[in-house]
Design a protein around this nucleic acid. Structure first.
Lengths: 189, 189
DNA sequence: TGTTTACACTAGCGCTTGCTTGGTTATGCT
DNA sequence: AGCATAACCAAGCAAGCGCTAGTGTAAACA
């Protein structure tokens, strides 16, 4: 019941369906068909439908966390570079792992109590990373305001992009990140 | 089938249930019970379940639009005052009409094609208002960046507040609006 | 060679869903 | 008084839901 390569693949397919139809409207039969098996076979890989949702969100969040940490290690250590790296990493995960993140954003409330508690820790770790980077930028005088408030405003702006951002359009995540950081930092430095 | 006072009341109750349970998990029987009638009677007021969702979102959006327009008329005509008035109005609607807005944010995709088309116009009108105010602030040199991009970033930051903002907490919408505007405007003016 | 393990199948149980039907009661106008 | 209309109810249909039980099969291991 733990994670096999097959389960990974199924989780990816499930994420896609959850985005298209929403969690509640996605039936186990639809999931099974998309996976090329019968509905009964699905419960060999997942205990119940809830566990599929949990798996989708967990993988998405874990990827986001990993990518953010890599980005921080790879970039320069100036507060501005770190801020930019975080924003860019966030936007890139939002694209490469789009389905999982849309599910995490829109179907969070369908999680039962224990799944939610488990995943909350992951999400909190990610937000703590943001607060750390934002805090450093504040101390350096790069931006101004309250650490938690700024973190939340920025995360909101970034997450909202899934509503309007078109990957086929002219802007890259790199540019988008730069424009966001430019918006909250004074023009003359 | 059009809007009676009773229908208004029912719409308000529906919004509350949709927030608690989500649209798909809210059954017509739950709706009816909350309204103090039997499930069959529900279809005297609404053609089908979809129409209830549509009514909830329509009223929320129309209120937001009205309140934003009032706020703009009531405030000073400087770009900064107008920006602040819009942010504050948005946060206040998000509070007073919280249920309807949460539904609009999270259950938008459950709308069928025609409802969505109808409501898109309302939403576009609201966003156009923001773009106008942001555009003026840009021309006045108050903020910098792209008109559409800034509008979307700001709207994202504001809408995200429904995830974390606690009305019982120490911050008022007024303060929150001020802090957001401060974040995107250079400190020295 | 015999046994285990992983994965899939068929069949269907018990329950809930949105919505309809056909009829009853309350309100208010003429 | 007579009538129209709005609001409601009890009962239930057809479809679909998540999930279970029991079985088959092919590869991996002893």
């Amino acid at each position: 019941m733990n994670d096999s390569p097959r389960r990974r693949e199924l989780t990816r397919l499930a994420a896609q369906l959850f985005v298209q139809e929403g969690f509640d409207r996605t039936t186990v039969r639809m999931l099974a068909q998309e996976m090329g098996i019968k509905s009964g076979s699905l419960f060999h890989h997942f205990r119940d439908k809830q566990e599929i949702l949990c798996a989708v969100i967990e993988e998405g969040t874990q990827n986001a966390l990993a990518i953010a940490r890599e980005a921080l290690e790879a970039c320069a250590s100036t507060p501005e570079a770190r801020l930019h790296a975080m924003a860019r990493a966030h936007l890139e995960t939002l694209l490469t792992d789009r389905n999982a993140h849309v599910v995490a954003l829109y179907e969070w409330r369908r999680l039962d109590a224990e799944s939610r508690a488990h995943l909350s820790h992951l999400r909190d770790a990610y937000e703590a990373l943001w607060q750390e980077v934002v805090g450093d930028a504040l101390e350096a005088g790069l931006i101004h305001g309250d650490k938690f408030l700024v973190s939340r405003f920025v995360l909101g702006a970034l997450n909202w992009t899934v509503r309007w951002y078109d990957p086929e359009g002219s802007r890259t995540p790199e540019e988008l990140a730069r424009e966001l950081i430019a918006m909250i930092t004074p023009p003359a430095r």
